[in-house]
Computed example of a mutant assay.
Amino acid sequence: MKFAVIVFPGSNCDADMYHAIKDSLGEDVEYVPHTASSLEGFDGVLLPGGFSYGDYLRSGAIARFSNVMPEVIRAAEAGKPVLGVCNGFQILLEAGLLPGAMRRNDSLKFICKPTILKVENANTQFTNAYTEGETIQIPVAHGEGNYYCDERTLSELKDNNRIVFTYDGENPNGSVSDIAGIINEQGNVLGMMPHPERAADSLLGSKDGLKLFQSIVKSWRESNAVNA
């Protein structure tokens, strides 16, 4: 499987994502600049964390108009797995690939620490290596991770099992219903604030994030075996 790590001006977790895929997962991966006009040849798309375009206007608001984003949207519409982490999640929200918006953390402070997540839905291509209700340790690092949506959207997310991860115990940012990660209706686009790429090696304190990437590869291989 071949992954694209999209690099925006201000991305700072692109190297973390790259090495999680290459060294911990053992799959093919390439950096793709925000100026790219094609994602041909890639099987999965990863939008890393950071401060794209300095978070001017709103986090992710300018990156949403980068040259590469129509290709990211096209990949999502084609059913390819698209993962947005932290700033990547914010970009997916701004692009309309996921519902809702991000607000400043309740504390109005940048938060960087390990968090405990609960796997709410283990029946997705991002979570099939986990078990339902499993708790995992994944770090967060953000100033605007307070996920918000209206009551109708929240009901839709809950009714369709689209809330993939929630904060278990302490909610670090005030996000509605303790939401830490959601998927789109088709189930191939995941946005999450915690950083699984920073929990892909025991040297980092946790390998719980590696299962997320393993899940993507497992689903991709099974899908391609069926379609072969």
Score class of each variant (00 low, 15 high):
1 M>D: 01
2 K>R: 15
6 I>F: 12
9 P>V: 14
11 S>V: 00
12 N>A: 01
13 C>K: 13
15 A>S: 14
16 D>I: 04
20 A>Q: 13
21 I>L: 15
21 I>H: 02
23 D>T: 15
24 S>D: 15
30 E>Y: 07
36 A>M: 08
41 G>Q: 03
41 G>S: 03
46 L>E: 08
48 P>H: 04
48 P>F: 05
50 G>F: 00
57 L>G: 08
59 S>L: 10
61 A>V: 07
62 I>F: 03
65 F>M: 11
68 V>H: 02
68 V>T: 06
68 V>R: 02
68 V>M: 06
73 I>L: 12
73 I>Q: 11
73 I>P: 10
74 R>S: 12
75 A>G: 12
75 A>K: 12
77 E>T: 06
77 E>W: 03
77 E>S: 08
77 E>Q: 13
78 A>R: 14
79 G>F: 10
83 L>P: 10
83 L>F: 11
84 G>H: 03
85 V>R: 08
88 G>R: 07
88 G>V: 09
89 F>L: 13
89 F>I: 13
93 L>D: 07
94 E>G: 02
94 E>Q: 12
96 G>C: 07
96 G>S: 08
97 L>D: 05
97 L>W: 06
97 L>G: 05
101 A>W: 07
102 M>E: 01
104 R>E: 04
105 N>C: 02
105 N>V: 02
107 S>M: 07
110 F>V: 02
113 K>A: 12
118 K>G: 14
126 F>P: 08
131 T>Y: 09
132 E>V: 06
134 E>A: 11
136 I>H: 07
139 P>I: 12
140 V>N: 05
141 A>F: 00
144 E>R: 00
144 E>H: 00
145 G>N: 06
149 C>Q: 02
150 D>S: 04
151 E>L: 09
155 S>M: 13
157 L>R: 04
157 L>V: 06
160 N>M: 08
163 I>M: 01
164 V>M: 04
165 F>I: 10
167 Y>T: 08
168 D>W: 11
169 G>R: 09
169 G>K: 07
171 N>Q: 05
171 N>T: 00
172 P>L: 04
176 V>N: 00
177 S>H: 13
179 I>Y: 02
184 N>P: 02
185 E>N: 00
188 N>C: 14
189 V>G: 06
189 V>Y: 05
190 L>A: 07
192 M>F: 07
194 P>T: 10
194 P>Q: 12
198 R>Y: 09
198 R>V: 05
201 D>A: 11
202 S>M: 06
203 L>K: 10
203 L>N: 14
205 G>D: 01
207 K>M: 11
211 K>C: 01
211 K>E: 08
213 F>Q: 08
215 S>P: 13
215 S>C: 13
218 K>Y: 00
219 S>H: 14
219 S>P: 05
220 W>P: 11
221 R>Y: 05
223 S>I: 09
224 N>G: 04
225 A>D: 05
